[in-house]
Structure formats: C-alpha cells, structure tokens
C-alpha cells in the first residue's frame, strides 16, 4: 500500500517540525534518510532544510552545510594529513579523520605502497561511515579497478564550498554556470560531495575564473545565475 505523502513535502522545515504522525498509518515501512528521526509515534525534523519525498516511501531533508556528514557510497575529495603503517589519515571535512588503508589501490600490495606526502589531494570513495568511528575510504571501485580515484595531479586549485553547492554541481540538469562556462572554456573539474571541488586548466586565470564564478553563484537563483553568466562571459570577451 502506498503511503500518503506528508503535506510538508517540498517545503522548508526547521528542527522540531513533525512531518508525519504514525498513529493513523499502520503496516507501512518508511525509509527515513538524513535529517529525520523517529520520536515515538511521530517523525520529527532534525536539520533545517527542504523536505523531499520519493516514491514509494523515502523521506529526507535536503540541507546545505559547510561540514560533511560521511555516508557510505559518496565520492569525496580528501587531503592527506598523516601516514601510519596501516592507513593514511585523510581529512574529508567530517567529524573525524578518515582512514584510507594503504592496500586499497588497484593492484596494491605490500611492495608498492604509494608514497603520499602531507597535503596530497585525493579523489576517494567512502566505503563505510558508522557514527562514532573513523570513516573508511578506498581508491578502488566495487570491481577493484582504479576508475577515477586516486591522486589529483599537482596542478589546479581546490576550492571550498558547501555541501549543497557540491550536490547541485553534480545534479542533472547541470548547474547553469558550470554548463555555460564549460561551453566556452576548457577546464577539468572534480567535485566531492563533501563540499570541495578542484579545477584545473592550462592557464591559471581560467582556473581562478571558474572557481570564483562557481563559488559566487551559490546564493543566486537560476535566473540570476544565467544573468551572472552572461555578464561574466561578456566581460572576458567570449
């Protein structure tokens, strides 16, 4: 039986709002994701944001912060801060430093452990993230291949953003500023869902332009973003 969606779906909610009362809904399973918790018979909101619903029964709150809550399956940008015999300690803007085992690379054995110095930028995936424990990372995909993971070349620049901006950069339809700049300039970009993105191009000025444009467009609406993009492209004469 399909659940009747809460009447607060796609609306802004704040902590403490009750979105569903379970006492008059029997024999249903609901999937609650980020930002919601069950308090006896009612589902309450923990984080401020927009309530979202996906059929048949998934609810979550979409919010945007500067810090990241690790969850399994995410692709993030991490910075190596220390090396231990068994793991690399990587900072992913979460509550705790994450461990990257020295062997979780494609074809990784004890003999060819990569040497990462402090400050190396990596594109990794989160394997497990249990609350209270340090998250575990891996540079391999499920098949054991390197895929896109690993060290990001020592060029380019990493910009900080919020988790919301990172999500919108990865969503489809694509982010207007990113799409517009991509049509006119050539650059490569790696986005981590933990609020970091890395831009590389042949010229430093392109990198700075793209990075700053994306950061500044975070607070603009879609229409404003299109206007901003037009003005920007006109000012650099493209």
């Amino acid at each position: 039986m399909e659940a009747k969606p809460s009447n607060l779906v796609d609306q802004l909610v704040v902590p403490g709002d009750v979105i569903l009362d379970l006492s008059n809904m029997a024999n249903q399973t609901l999937k609650l994701s980020g930002g919601l918790r069950q308090d006896g018979d009612s589902i309450c909101v923990m984080k401020a944001g927009k309530l979202r619903f996906m059929k048949p029964n998934k609810y979550w709150v979409e919010s945007s912060q500067k810090r990241y809550v690790p969850s399994a399956g995410d692709n993030v940008l991490g910075v190596v801060v220390d090396t231990k015999p068994e793991n690399f300690l990587v900072d992913i803007k979460g509550p705790a430093l994450a461990f990257l085992p020295v062997l979780s690379f494609e074809g990784g054995t004890r003999r060819n452990i990569p040497k990462f110095e402090v400050g190396t930028l990596l594109y990794v995936s989160v394997v497990s993230a249990n609350p209270g424990m340090n998250p575990e990372l891996s540079c391999m995909d499920v098949n054991g291949k390197a895929a896109e993971y690993g060290v990001l070349k020592e060029e380019g620049y990493m910009f900080e953003s919020s988790t919301g901006l990172a999500r919108s950069l990865l969503s489809s339809p694509p982010h207007p500023v990113l799409e517009g700049l991509g049509k006119k300039l050539s650059f490569e970009i790696a986005v981590g869902i933990n609020g970091r993105f890395w831009v590389n191009a042949l010229q430093s000025s392109t990198v700075i332009l793209v990075g700053n444009a994306i950061q500044k467009s975070e607070s603009l609406s879609l229409v404003q973003q299109k206007i901003y993009l037009e003005k920007l492209l006109k000012s650099i004469q493209l």
Binding site: V81, L121, I208, G211
Partner: peptide, 28 residues
Amino acid sequence: RLANSLIMTVNEKKFIENALVSDIRVDG
C-alpha cells in the same frame, strides 16, 4: 593539532606560486 590547523594541499601551494608568476591571485 591537525584538526585545528589549516590543512593546505600541495596543489594549492604550487598554484598560488604559479599564478603569481602571471601576476594573478586566487581571489582574482
């Protein structure tokens, strides 16, 4: 101490120096 101090990547350091060679800084 690691958690409190600013963590700079190698990329950022190199980029700041390289960009300055062409007279431009990270914030434009």
